[in-house]
Design a protein around this nucleic acid. Structure first.
Lengths: 330, 330
DNA sequence: CTTAGCACTCTCTATTATCGACTGCCTATT
DNA sequence: AATAGGCAGTCGATAATAGAGAGTGCTAAG
């Protein structure tokens, strides 16, 4: 591909992102200083390469998935954020009294407004969290509430229903045992420790304690596996003109937003800003997902932006970069 | 309105609910054993009364909002649940080890599948909850996590960021004070008690304690005011044929689902199953909301079902009744 | 009070025509 | 060999037209 061909691809991608309308050869004449016929020749070459498509025989050109990919990989220059974008986000991150999870929630809201995309945060229950306190409080004869606190300030709680009553003493014994052996242990190692160090001791004791113990293990298990999903601007993506007339696409995407298994799949394991265009993501062929993993002092998670393939890649990547950096700085 | 008129209204409402298509006079001939002309006369009288409408001059009849209202108030006979409906719900409520909030969540899912409607639960942070334990745990120099547990087994937590360090001793003093004065107090009275009984004492002490104290009051305040929103089957309502072609209606409703202020407005204060048809609800003219308040041993909340005005009122009311009863029995 | 009959209205679908925006390709030019 | 002018051809979008079908309203008669 020569310079002019790259330039044409760039212009078409950017114009299509702006207008959502197929780009004609004539509309590029002035910018490129050559005739529309010449541009048409180049366009049909770019189509041969697979970077452009037509919506019908005599329509203008539209970027193909690999066209976007080429643009993102080789042409796009990430765009400095505008004052307005920064201003809005700073209001969150300069606010020292905001706690991480609140800051993430608010910033998702802002970015989703700023981009008309849907924002998702998947907060993993962080393997770098260590247990720092376990408490079990009896509510009634058969109801207990268990609370765990980690050294990162995470709190999780769960209610247990036990078939038969356990005496406060028995509860205390079990909890003391658990506390004694697992305080300071990383969450994902807690269950192994309970299994091999604590269970043998419990075996010698009454059955009731064992039920409580097992329920507690399940609780820990769920905490380490469940991811905390935050989602903002579900309906924003519907503002995009590609969804204006296609009711089925709308229904399809909205249903997927409702489905935890789809959302959990979005989790990003690698570092850096990652872009998954159309069929490159496992969520939906009609969208692009831009993601980043973050690690804020051991609180690990993913921020993802879901929008049309025709999205402002240069701006969105910078917005996510900004989010990631500010979250990690907290 | 004579018997036959009522019968005609009933048939039209039920037929329209089933098919979503305007009902013609001819289609009722056999059922009513009289000519279509007679039925047409009755229909136009019912239209005069405001119970029926036409989609255009020569179309069949469709129930108006007051038509549905009359049907619901005077004609409808709540329909015994089918074996299948009951079976699915029993799997939730017979499971003794499920905790209230999990049971609600699961049952919302089931009913939303069963009805193709969207289900919402607003769990109020229940004024009948009394504080039974307060804990504040230091995480870092400037970070604390506060946890409160109520006598109903509710747990709420919040992270605080404090500008300057507070010594563990000072924290303990404040927390002890709070505990000493407010344990056993109903949540909604806690702040008043803190203000009038505890604040005067704190005033004599260091400033830092006061900041912590104020943050704690805000926390309690938010807990008593924020309602816990659960929502299932957001996309279900899109299955209804009335939304098949109208993209704007879809976008409108999906956006409202996203908007907490709209959702919080759904809260129901009165007892019993309440039906709000179209403009009777403040949510959206195109939907009907069927709600019920529940009170499960002091855990108070609202269950709401959002669907098209053209919904199976007789079945839906019984499903909600069943939900309410089973939730309250827990 | 009921009903048969008929004119009328409106939706829906298909057909046709026309306009406008493109492209593709052939050919002439530099 | 790259560029550009010119022109035919394709397709979408819009509008106009026609005919069938499903209903209603109204009138007049039983």
């Amino acid at each position: 591909m020569n310079n002019r061909q790259v330039e044409i691809l760039k212009l078409i991608v950017e114009e299509y992102i702006k207008t959502a309308k197929p780009v004609s050869s004539k509309s590029l004449e002035q910018t490129l200083n050559c005739s529309s016929a010449t541009i048409r020749n180049e366009m049909s070459y770019l189509e041969e390469l697979g970077y452009l498509e037509k919506t019908h025989t005599s329509s203008g050109r539209v970027p193909s998935e690999s066209g976007y990919r080429y643009y993102v990989d080789n042409i796009m220059v990430p765009k400095e954020l505008t004052g307005n974008d920064i201003l809005k986000l700073q209001s969150i991150f300069k606010n020292q009294s905001l706690v991480l999870s609140d800051a993430i929630e608010k910033s998702l809201e802002i970015v989703s407004d700023l981009t008309s995309c849907t924002l998702v945060a998947l907060g993993s229950s962080s393997k770098e969290n260590c247990l720092s306190k376990v408490e079990v409080i009896p509510i009634t004869d058969t109801n207990l509430v268990a609370i765990i606190v980690t050294d990162k300030g995470h709190v999780e709680n769960r209610n247990f229903v036990i078939d038969e009553g356990i005496s406060p003493l028995e509860i205390k014994q079990t909890v003391d045992l658990i506390n004694k052996h697992v305080i300071g242990t990383p969450l994902d190692e807690v269950n192994a420790k309970l299994e091999f160090e604590v269970k043998p001791i419990i075996s010698d004791n009454v059955n009731y304690q064992r039920k409580l113990f097992d329920a507690f293990c399940n609780f820990i298990n769920d905490v380490t596996n469940d991811s905390n999903i935050k989602m903002k601007g579900r309906s924003n993506i519907l503002k995009q003109p590609e969804f204006d007339s296609d009711v089925d696409k709308i229904k399809n995407i909205i249903s997927k937003f409702d489905d935890k298994s789809f959302i959990n799949n979005i989790k990003e394991e690698e570092n850096g800003i990652k872009i998954y265009i159309g069929s490159e993501n496992k969520f939906d062929d009609d969208v692009t997902i831009v993601k980043t993993k973050y690690n804020a002092n051991g609180e690990i998670g993913t921020i993802a932006l879901i929008g049309p393939k025709r999205m402002e890649y240069d701006r969105v990547t910078m917005l996510l970069e900004y989010l990631k950096n500010n979250i990690e700085r907290m």
